[in-house]
């Protein structure tokens, strides 16, 4: 559903309660006044939260208003087509995660990732391995050791089928020559429940959605698939430190039309690094242990192309697609 925010004619009382945003900082000039940021997943999803967070704070650094529109359907195919069709004046951007690459490769929609221009990368979402608080596993190495003795004995809960989390486990199996049972769910929450009730021995997920359980000790992290240890969990070793050479780069970024206005790109490239240093914004994203990982257009484009090539190889190797 697309929406501008006029509904609030109905709730002027609510309006009265909201606080006007601060005006202190110096702002980047931007070609248009109102910017729509397209999100392919539904309101409330992880990606949606990320983009809403960005849109909330970005107007402090760019002289424009940002609003999020959820264009759901077709696992992002619809949102990509919608974004590509819009004028390339910077008024229509799209917030993305690896899903848009996967959808482009698997279902070959009329408009795919190669028809859109990566603009800036903002974050990498650390993917972590968790076990129940009282689990026998202390490290990822424990898991691998047991998997070697009991093929298919260990059960792993992951989110949506075909997602990056499941892929993580397939890679782990291939790297270590083990076999475990990978159980996909309808989403991260579902998978988390399977870990909590003992259906699965371990789970793969993002810090943001596991935070409450991690804080209370119901869940215990045993590894992170990031380059470095992550914020808020200084004692949590990376997979690499545990001898498993794997890094998962679940990126979050912004893309736009192929011929996106250079001024818009320039403004975003200049504003995003400042945004990542913004005190309020930082407090917000550090709670979810998001890793700030800014990349400007050129680098992000290369990153996307490499990422897509790797995904394609993976899908072919695992017979998700044929050629």
């Amino acid at each position: 559903m697309k929406m501008n925010w006029q509904v609030v004619a109905l709730s002027s009382a609510v309006l009265a309660l909201s606080v006007p945003p601060g005006w202190a900082q110096e702002k980047q000039a931007y070609p248009v006044k109102n910017v729509t940021m397209v999100m392919q997943s539904s309101p409330g999803s992880g990606g949606d939260l990320f983009l809403r967070g960005v849109s909330l704070h970005l107007s402090k650094y760019i002289d424009a208003n940002f609003a999020v529109e959820n264009i759901t359907g077709g696992s992002g195919a619809k949102a990509m087509a919608f974004t590509a069709k819009a004028p390339a004046d910077g008024g229509m951007l799209m917030g993305v995660s690896p899903t848009y690459i996967n959808t482009s490769i698997i279902s070959k929609p009329p408009v795919g990732f190669s028809d859109l221009q990566p603009v800036v990368r903002l974050f990498l979402d650390p993917v972590i391995v968790v076990v129940k608080g009282d689990s026998r596993f202390k490290t990822l190495a424990d898991v691998v050791a047991e998997a070697k003795t009991k093929p298919m004995g260990i059960k792993v809960a992951v989110g949506e089928p075909g997602g990056l989390e499941g892929q993580t486990m397939v890679e782990l199996m291939q790297k270590t020559g083990t076999k475990v049972a990978v159980i996909s769910h309808d989403g991260g929450g579902d998978a988390l429940l399977s870990v909590l009730n003992g259906t699965a021995d371990l789970g793969i997920g993002e810090v943001a959605e596991l935070k409450g359980q991690l804080d209370s000790g119901e869940l215990r992290p045993i590894a992170t698939y990031s380059d470095e240890r992550i914020n808020g969990y200084p004692d949590l070793p990376t997979a690499r430190e545990q001898g498993i050479d794997m890094v998962i780069r679940k990126f979050r970024g912004i893309i736009a039309q192929k011929d996106i206005s250079p001024e818009a790109v320039k403004a975003l490239e200049a504003a995003v690094p400042k945004l990542l240093e913004d005190k309020e914004f930082k407090a917000w994203y550090q709670q979810g242990s998001l890793i700030p990982a800014f990349q400007p257009r050129e680098e992000f484009t290369k990153f996307i192309n490499d990422f897509a090539a790797a995904q394609k190889d993976y899908f072919i190797a695992n017979k998700v697609i044929t050629q």
Partner: peptide
């Protein structure tokens, strides 16, 4: 748990997170 029972409850979860509150046993 921080696990929305329905997709609609996910929006409440979003509002909690935006206000810096992390659902969970605590």
């Amino acid at each position: 748990f921080g696990i929305p029972g329905t997709s609609n409850a996910a929006l409440l979860l979003a509002a909690l997170l935006i206000h810096g509150l992390h659902p969970g046993p605590l």
